[in-house]
Amino acid sequence: MDCHSDSEDSLELGDGTEVSVSISEEHWKKNVHAGEIGCTDCHTAISDYPHPDVEAKDLRDYQINRAETCKRCHYAHFTRVADSIHYKQFEEGNRNAPTCVDCHGAHDIAVPGEPRMAVDERCAQCHAEISDAYRRSVHGKALLESNNPDVPVCTDCHGSHQIKDPRNADFHAASYQICAKCHSDADRMERYGLNPDVVDTYLDDFHGASNALYAEGLGRPDKKLATCTSCHGIHDIPSFKEADKSVVRARVLKTCRECHEEVPDGFQDAWLSHYPPTLSEAPLVWLVKWFYRVVIPLIMLGLVLHILMHLWRFRFRRPGGHR
């Protein structure tokens, strides 16, 4: 630290780049590791002076190699990263795929996810467009405007280390479970006056039941499967709380037509707005539902009683005549 604070020295890497070796004490103190580990715990090649030459070809090479250092303590995180889409990109030759220090920093490693908006900022370094869409969404706005602790940031849906490719069918089929984490949580939904049955009503419908079964691994749909994001969008999810009914229904119909091109107007009425049927909103569905709710138990009760009486008569009161 004595040498490197405010040092004007620099280091020449394999490709000739000069890198400053200066590090301020203030900067280092921001590091969660400060006071816990020392310089040589990470810079393991250095044990005395003069330091051995740095073997990195260039700066990126040096940064990538730091992962080996982090791995020594954070092995579990390292293995999770090895399963991620980012690591896959790296293996395919993309040296810009993020490595530890790109997200966590080097000498100023902070507690991850604090503040939560910092997560978005980090991902935005590469995924700027998605970040912009997110900031327009009901979730992003709430985070920006009131630092709302309930709305998701990038990592809540995508994970942090083991980030999967969100473009494949498996991710698509399982994505409703991500939404369900919050939107089936009655307490959390109550705070915002939101309907906690949205996921259950989706699952009870044709697309939802199919989705649930595909998510269990019972085959792979050859067509695009209608799921939460099909109607609500992905990163730019708007609020429908105050939305006009006809606008919502028009949006649903538009979504239907993405797969079922020929559907007639009115087709969207097959969708019951994520609510169980009511007499005023969907009288026909309500009637059919209650008809069976009453008729099935009544018929079955009658039949079982008839059977029991038959058995009883047969067993105990067998008449003298014919059986």
Partner: peptide
């Protein structure tokens, strides 16, 4: 559903699903 929906309307599609499954 697409062909019949135009004749019987969207709500009847939902009702058919409930009826099919309960019956």
């Amino acid at each position: 559903p697409v062909e019949t929906g135009g004749i019987i309307g969207g709500e009847a599609l939902a009702a058919s699903r409930i009826a099919h499954s309960n019956e």
